[in-house]
Design a protein around this nucleic acid. Structure first.
Lengths: 188, 188
DNA sequence: ACCGTCATGTAATCGGTTACATGATTCT
DNA sequence: AGAATCATGTAACCGATTACATGACGGT
């Protein structure tokens, strides 16, 4: 949440998507999120109905509503909205990223239980991250590097992370397998 | 948030810390978080005053309050609390981790601006992640691998991530430097 | 005409963050 | 004794998640 503007990261997601896609309905945004950004930064679709309203109140987008059929709302970036987005993009980020992975949280406390349980955790995590890595590979294949090179780079970072995570959990798995007993049996 | 128990990740952090440290005051928890877990999963200290109260209502911890001086509250894990914690630890995590890094969000939309701005972003991110990597190295040095091997592993994962991130941003920096113009000048 | 899925929204709840505030200790 | 820092809390706000609900459309 930016204190100057009262905008949240979600706000910038919406602004950015509107800048990339042009005028869009919440459902357009939803699909766009689902197909690429959602892997990095997901949120429920309800946000994509509410957030644009906030932005409209702030004058950063305009809303136009159909008066026939589905009465869809279409949102369009205003020039103020675009300026706000660009200013944000140009401000080097100072906040660090946090990992905030529930599985790592479990690992952190796993000395309380024991090797068997960690082994199960590690295997399922390796699966998960491998699968997600494939997904990023697919996304990179589809993305047009020449048109949106930085977007492609972002997906590449996702891939790097997922591969690193998969490797990490596999290493734990293997060490647990062949160094039986070395990592203790925990309490209980 | 776990639907069965009504407990959140923060709850488990508190339960886990109480299990590791023994009876503690919120301030004890705060220090413990600050010195290791906080790098992975941070939150304001106010949580550490409120969350134990919730857990006390749920019967997972007990509260004892000094009646002299600072009137500190000391929280102790109950056996139900410990069982709840252990059950959680033993349930292999199914939710994937999300990256949710504001800097990556910026990169994702950086095709809208241009190479100069991205360059600044990349440099500052490389700094940030290098610094954080050193911090994890320090933590691993301090941690006693034989007593809490999994905790040490967790810190190692933090290190792996930070190094990967630092390398990633540096690569972007460098490609931007010597392939001038290759990545376009953006709009504006 | 019916049914399933696609599409579109709203309302309530709630944890987390921010901001505020003051009490104890320690140091000079 | 005064200042600075350490320690301990509370209250309000608010964005995000959850749950609910219904409308449109395409196929059979």
């Amino acid at each position: 949440m930016d204190e100057q503007t009262g905008l949240t990261s979600t706000s910038y997601v919406v602004l950015g998507l509107l800048a990339s896609l042009g005028p869009s309905t919440p459902y357009d945004l939803k699909r766009a999120v689902a197909e690429s950004l959602g892997n990095l930064w997901s949120f429920p679709h309800s946000q994509l109905y509410v957030e644009p309203q906030r932005l409209a109140e702030a004058g950063l987008v305009t809303e136009h509503r159909e008066d026939k059929g589905r009465r869809r709302r279409t949102y369009t970036l205003t020039s103020r909205g675009r300026r706000t987005l660009v200013r944000w993009l140009r401000t080097p980020e100072i906040s660090g990223h946090e990992v905030r992975d529930p599985a790592l949280l479990k690992l952190f406390f796993s000395d309380l239980v024991g090797a068997q349980d960690v082994s199960a955790l590690a295997r399922s995590q390796e699966q998960l991250h491998s699968k997600q890595a494939s997904e990023y590979e697919r996304l990179m294949g589809e993305s047009k590097e020449d048109e949106m090179p930085f977007r492609a780079e972002t997906m590449r970072m996702g891939l790097v992370f997922e591969r690193a995570a998969a490797r990490f959990w596999r290493a734990i798995s293997e060490e647990l397998r062949d160094a039986t007993g070395h990592w203790g049996g925990g309490n209980e």
